[in-house]
């Protein structure tokens, strides 16, 4: 078990390193001089050169990367060009907003998608199920930014129920959560349905039914217990992906999370800030994945036994 965890942690660190390295190199190959964004209007070439020197951009890319790594091992991911503060601080300030949104979205998704998927599996091949099936296909077919705008037009502009954007009060979270949840509910409920259909048709269920187990227990304690593993995996993967920034929804709602931060940082060519965001979010997402994998043995005795025998 310990070797497994250590191996996974090692993989996580390596993946995060590769992601940051890729972003580091791509950023510096991209056209557009960051110095021009932070110089006074109509800068002279001396002024630009001074800014480049200040940011360390006058060095060759391998040298810049080496310096970056040296600082990284001292716990320093650089100073944001735009905010003139340590980039890590800026990211950590924004992170709680993204985490809040992701947690809210994943909770809403689980609460709606699991019962919906189970219902669809139990009613498989009936007209109501066909309706729900087409509904979930529609749910995963709409662009998320468009859903956001339609909700805004409906509830913020016409009905004045919510503030149109930003983070003013506790109710601000409702529309962004809903926007993310619509797509996720569609995806997860279809997965739950697929898994449940297989399990509801398996022989072990017929045996249990012949012993007189109630339909409710058959559905939840027997079939769902077996279908839960891939569903939890999918929920974990989705949650991890959201931590990488629910970029589009954050932009639509001006939500002050890391997704919005990184899009603006990209426009401003704020290299250290982008690197810090990628580093933090990738590490966080990988940590969530690892946690989900470690949950397996708790949820499924077969995984425990498999490990013991191997």
């Amino acid at each position: 078990m310990l070797t497994y965890v250590l191996k996974r942690v090692g993989q996580t660190v390596l993946t995060a390193f590769l992601a940051v390295a890729t972003v580091f190199v791509l950023l510096r190959m991209a056209p557009g001089d960051p110095a021009a964004n932070y110089a006074p209007p109509n800068p002279s070439s001396e002024q630009l050169e001074a800014i480049r020197q200040q940011f360390g951009l006058d060095q060759p890319i391998p040298v810049q990367f080496w310096t970056f790594l040296q600082h990284l091992f001292q716990g320093d991911v650089g100073t944001s060009f735009f905010f003139k503060r340590p980039a890590l601080d800026v990211v950590l300030e924004r992170l709680p907003y993204t985490i809040t949104l992701a947690v809210a979205a994943i909770v809403v998704t689980s609460v709606v998608a699991i019962p919906l998927g189970v219902w669809m599996a139990r009613r498989n091949n009936t007209a109501p199920e066909l309706g729900a099936n087409i509904g979930t296909i529609a749910g995963q077919s709409m662009p998320d930014f468009w859903i956001g705008f339609v909700l805004l037009i409906l509830f913020a502009v016409n009905l004045h129920w919510f503030a149109p954007s930003g983070f003013d009060s506790a109710t601000s979270i409702i529309l962004p959560t809903l926007t993310i949840a619509i797509l996720q509910i569609a995806l997860i409920s279809r997965l739950v349905r697929r898994e449940m259909v297989v399990n509801l048709a398996s022989p072990y269920l017929t045996v249990a039914r012949s012993r007189g187990v109630s339909e409710r227990a058959l559905t939840w304690r027997y079939a769902f217990a077996n279908a839960a593993l891939p569903v939890v995996t999918a929920l974990g993967t989705r949650f991890a992906a959201m931590l990488n920034g629910v970029v589009i929804v954050e932009v639509v709602f001006n939500w002050p999370g890391v997704g919005e931060l990184v899009v603006n940082a990209l426009k401003q060519r704020d290299f250290p800030l982008i690197q810090a965001t990628v580093l933090v979010t990738v590490l966080l997402a990988l940590a969530v994945q690892l946690l989900v994998d470690l949950l397996y043995p708790l949820m499924d005795p077969r995984v425990r036994l498999g490990e013991a025998s191997s």
């Binding site: 993946t15 590769l18 890729t22 991209a30 056209p31 990488n244 899009v263």
Partner: peptide
């Protein structure tokens, strides 16, 4: 597997910018 771990949208934005 490696591609799963990357922040995809950000990468795509970067490449288009590049």
């Amino acid at each position: 597997e490696a591609q799963m771990a990357l922040p995809l949208l950000l990468m795509l934005l970067l490449v288009v910018a590049l």
